[in-house]
Design a protein around this nucleic acid. Structure first.
Lengths: 144, 144
DNA sequence: CCAGGCTCATTAGTTAAGCTAACGAGTGTG
DNA sequence: CACACTCGTTAGCTTAACTAATGAGCCTGG
């Protein structure tokens, strides 16, 4: 199992294809829950970060501030997100997931992971290790 | 570099996170082109299939027929799709990508791969090999 | 020390993308 | 050949994204 030389130009389309296809599959495996993909994504980011201003959350989600205003409004309606004033800056607002928001996230997360986890369970230890290392590399690329 | 034991329940979220994030990044790396993701997807499917009726294309894209009517109308406006009457059935219409449509597809495809390829080029040979093996495994999972 | 410029969040208004319901033209069969 | 069914489209609604503009609050240079 020596490392074979892999030209990037050849690997790129192959990897991209694998990722987009798998992404579609994972997305299809979601509960009929009443949260839209956009709302779920924002809530996830917010929960991961702990607390963010609307601007920061918009940047994370790669969305314009007015768009985030609406998304947050819907999440707040359902009591999944809490809005508190910034301690020193009167312009800003602090957003955080509520207990209920975290509960909803857990539920979605579990349903999504189940499908993929069952596939992974069918692989060999070695294949899973390859995927683990690949996941690290891919996360680094995505973050860059 | 021995294979470490990786429980599927732990790998699944990590891998899913890596994939969804990378997928977002790849999608964002599109030319400022005036085509939306939806339009691009429909055009791609149409090009792959060669020729389809609106109904068939709607099924492929998992969209309702009226939605496809609008998408096709926009693509037709730009001269990327051609509409010809069905030879025997007066109700139906045959859709096909024009030469211009195929040219646009090529251009998008290239731009998307370029972004990823440049990231891959910065990795070590060994890392690229890990990704190549991972891509094979992931494609198999997605296909299942 | 305060006037002007900047930042933050929101509001207003537009466009795209999805849906269901309904309709008109065309097909085909009992 | 009348009637039911299919195909594509139109009409009207919802959600999600955008840009432009607004109002509140902050901060700094003269």
């Amino acid at each position: 199992m020596t490392a074979k030389r892999v030209p990037p130009a050849q690997l790129a389309p192959q990897l991209r294809d694998a990722i987009t296809r798998l992404n579609r599959r994972v997305r299809q495996a979601r509960p009929v829950g009443d949260l839209t993909v956009t709302q779920l994504s924002a809530l996830t980011s917010l929960n991961l970060a702990g607390a963010l201003t609307p601007r920061e959350l918009a940047d994370v989600e790669r969305v314009q501030p007015p768009t985030m205003t609406k998304i947050v409004a819907k999440l707040e309606e359902r009591g999944l997100v809490q809005r508190t004033p910034h301690p020193t800056d009167g312009r800003q607002v602090i957003l955080a997931a509520t207990e209920g928001g975290r509960a909803v996230l857990d539920q979605f997360e579990r349903a999504r992971n189940e499908w993929l986890a069952s596939r992974l369970a069918a692989l060999s230890e070695e294949e899973r290790d390859t995927l683990r290392r690949a996941a690290d590399i891919l996360q680094a690329i995505a973050r860059a």
